[in-house]
Structures are given as C-alpha cells and as structure tokens.
C-alpha cells in the first residue's frame, strides 16, 4: 500500500520535473548575454541495488530534460556502481548531485516501500565528500 502511494507521488514528481526542465530549456533561449548552457558530466555513486532500480533510475534521469545518462560503471568490491550524468543547467557539481540523490531517494521509497535510512545516506555523503577532497 505504501508502495502504491510512493509510486503515485514518484510519477507526479517525474512529470513535474519534465515540465520544469522543459521550461528551463525554453526560457534559457531568451537569455542572450551569457552562454546558453553549462555542460558538465558528474559521477553519481548509486544506492540502487537491483537491475530494475538501476534501469528505472537511469530512464528517469534521461527523461528529465537537462540531465542525460552517458555511461554506467559497474560496481567493484570496494565501490558501488556509478552513473555518469551529463547535466546542462546545473550551477555546480554539488547541486547536480543533490538533485539526483533526492530523485533516487524517492525512487527507492517506491521500490522498497520506505525511504532508505538516514544513516546510510549520511554514510554516502561522507564517502562522496571524502572522495572530492
């Protein structure tokens, strides 16, 4: 039952992301003073475990205008699998990753019935911060 509620809210979230992303792409056309886009490719370590979760997450990222999955790295013994995401309109690498991780949390709440625990999320952010330092 909780999965159904999370699923409906996830679909609504994706549709809203499509609308706002399309609006960004269209409205940036009228900004002539600066460069149209700030392309970047960020690396996103995944918390998704099963094939279904990874596929759904990659498709959701790609259908959102402004973000595109370019490559998937399989996990190793020490590192989780990672997605390489091409983003057009993000301000910085951190804000791009933040939006993607929020989307992933909603997706995991849908497939697992509840959001992933806060403790594991803190571990994730600690690990990624340690990596960029």
């Amino acid at each position: 039952m909780m999965r159904l509620i999370h699923g409906i809210s996830y679909v609504a979230y994706i549709l809203w992301a499509i609308v706002t992303g399309s609006f960004t792409i269209a409205s940036r056309l009228f900004v002539l003073r600066e460069a149209y886009a700030r392309p970047m490719i960020v690396e996103l370590p995944l918390r998704c475990a099963t094939d279904l979760e990874v596929t759904l997450f990659a498709s959701s990222i790609t259908i959102t205008p402004g973000t595109l999955v370019t490559a998937i790295a399989s996990g190793t013994a020490t590192q989780p699998p990672a997605l390489f995401v091409h983003a057009l309109f993000e301000d910085s690498e951190e804000s791009a990753l933040e939006g993607l991780i929020a989307m992933e949390s909603r997706l995991l709440a849908m497939t697992r019935g509840r959001a992933p625990r806060a403790a594991s999320r803190d571990l994730e952010t600690d690990a990624s911060e340690g990596g960029t330092r």
Binding site: A26, I63, G66, T70
Partner: peptide, 26 residues
C-alpha cells in the same frame, strides 16, 4: 524551442540532452 536549443549547444551529448523536451512533453 528544443529544435532551437539544439543549435545553441555545441556537442553531440548536449544536443541529445536538449532534445528531450520534444519527446518528453511536446
């Protein structure tokens, strides 16, 4: 709009990216 956006960006990846409003919403 997404057709014009494809001309405003510079490489193949960005063009694939800027094309998604057309298929996702248009």
């Amino acid at each position: 709009a997404s057709a014009i956006a494809m001309f405003r960006v510079r490489d193949a990846l960005s063009r694939i990216n800027a094309f998604s409003p057309a298929t996702g919403l248009g």
